[in-house]
């Protein structure tokens, strides 16, 4: 399933070299997370705040984002400091995709099957792009149980690649949201509570980006 120590050493050296020679002029900031955690809502918020245009369509039906979306040269400012990066919105990572779930949410069978097929490709692409990221915001839904295997897999893969990570506990505007629970679940990481939809905590997130990149 995987090579032995040589393969692991090769992967480790690759990520080390990548982090040393990271081209600071073309920093890629990825948005990763499970489906429906609000990655595209956050991407839209960042893009609207700093370049005045949206990034993608959002929907309550999972797997709305099925392709990698990139916004070039997003520039954010803090005092006289500037941060320029490529914002990469990725499809939500999942371990299963059942077209029947889309049918239950009102899609016609043919459309549901098409969406499922595109969603599988989206997950594969998102995983492939893990190697290309310079830093990642892992966007989690703060109203859900954070100890989910998908979240653990994403964070583990980023750690294995030495990619700087900031966890964004999104949807704190919801009554059942609990950013503290996310902090307790992942004590090794910095966690910022925000509502990408309402905008709360977003300034704090922008400040943290200067630390991350």
């Amino acid at each position: 399933m995987v090579g032995g120590p040589l393969k692991r050493l090769h992967n480790w050296l690759k990520s080390l070299i990548r982090s040393i020679f990271r081209r600071k002029t073309e920093v890629r900031l990825g948005l990763y997370g499970p489906t429906n955690s609000g990655k595209t809502t956050l991407a839209n918020r960042i893009c609207m705040d700093w370049i005045g245009e949206k990034m993608g369509k959002v929907s309550s039906i999972p797997h709305e984002t099925r392709e990698i979306q990139v916004k070039e040269k997003v520039t954010i400012e803090k005092g006289n400091k500037k941060l320029v990066f490529k914002l990469v919105d990725t499809p939500g990572i999942a371990t299963k995709i059942d077209f029947e779930d889309f049918v239950k949410r009102g899609l016609k069978k043919k459309k549901a099957k098409q969406r499922a097929k595109e969603a599988t490709k989206g997950v594969i692409e998102a995983i492939k792009w893990l190697d290309k990221m310079d830093a990642v915001l892992v966007v989690l839904d703060a109203s859900k149980n954070p100890i989910d295997q998908v979240n653990v897999t994403i964070l583990g893969n980023l750690e294995a690649r030495n990619t700087p990570v900031l966890i964004v506990a999104n949807k704190i505007d919801l009554k059942r949201a609990n950013a503290q629970k996310v902090r307790e679940a992942f004590p090794k990481y910095k966690v910022i509570g925000i509502s990408a939809k309402k905008g709360s905590g977003i300034k704090n997130l922008y400040n943290e980006l200067f630390e991350l990149l």
């Binding site: 399933m1 995987v2 692991r8 992967n11 990572i93 999942a94 371990t95 299963k96 995709i97 059942d98 077209f99 029947e100 099957k113 499922a116 097929k117 599988t120 490709k121 997950v123 594969i124 995983i127 492939k128 893990l130 295997q149 897999t153 583990g156 893969n157 750690e159 294995a160």
Partner: peptide
């Protein structure tokens, strides 16, 4: 499993998804 092994498994599962196989559940 190592994180890269988990990711590889998820990718492989995604490639095989059909009306008879909707993917995997895993936890460790």
């Amino acid at each position: 499993l190592m994180p890269r092994e988990e990711a590889r498994l998820i990718r492989a599962a995604m490639k095989k998804i059909s009306s008879k196989f909707s993917g995997i559940e895993l936890n460790s």
